[in-house]
């Protein structure tokens, strides 16, 4: 079914138009990478703070309030640029296992970021009140960092698998 959808998408006039424009894919990929840079940097700084690797500067709650809206804006750019790239080369993306893994990991990372943001919004000290929460917060931060690395790796590996 995905194969048939990819073939249908590739045959649409918009997909052909994008594919014929030599500058289109590198330009959209550049925008995609710049948005990834924003997400990876902001989430890394937030999660390093949650892991208490960094301790100075604003509080975790203040960092989350400042950074997470930028993460959402960047994710919108990633979604739009990602859809454009998929429309241009549907089979290269949709039939690719690295791409599918990347999408799954993005979904998990989004859920973890929503959990982090909403808990801190309701209680700025949520992740520091008990040892169990400190451990859980640290685990979420570590998993988020691993996800960031894995998403970039899976994205680059789309070209190789």
């Amino acid at each position: 079914m995905i194969q048939a959808f990819s073939e249908w998408l590739a045959a649409t006039s918009l997909s052909r138009l994008f594919a014929d424009l030599g500058w289109f894919v590198p330009t959209v990929q550049t925008i995609h990478i710049l948005a990834i840079a924003a997400v990876v940097t902001l989430l890394s700084m937030l999660n390093f703070r949650l892991l208490r690797i960094t301790r100075s500067g604003p509080s975790l709650q203040s960092l989350a309030a400042g950074y997470v809206p930028w993460v959402w804006r960047s994710l919108v750019i990633l979604l739009v640029s990602g859809i454009l790239l998929t429309m241009t080369e549907p089979s290269r993306e949709l039939m690719n296992n690295a791409f599918r893994l990347k999408m799954l990991l993005v979904l998990v990372l989004t859920v973890l970021t929503v959990i982090l943001r909403s808990t801190l919004r309701h209680d700025p000290e949520y992740w520091t009140t008990t040892p169990q929460r400190r451990l859980l917060g640290g685990t979420i931060a570590a998993v988020s960092l691993i996800l960031c690395v894995s998403i970039v790796a899976a994205g680059r590996l789309i070209a190789y698998v």
């Binding site: 990834i36 940097t41 790796a153």
Partner: peptide, 29 residues
Amino acid sequence: TVHVLALTLVVGSVAMMDLRLLGIGSRDR
């Protein structure tokens, strides 16, 4: 992959500083 990952951190952190200089981001710091 490691090059791209490191580059995302370089670009992201440099952009944070640049946006602060422009008065767009991190204005409370």
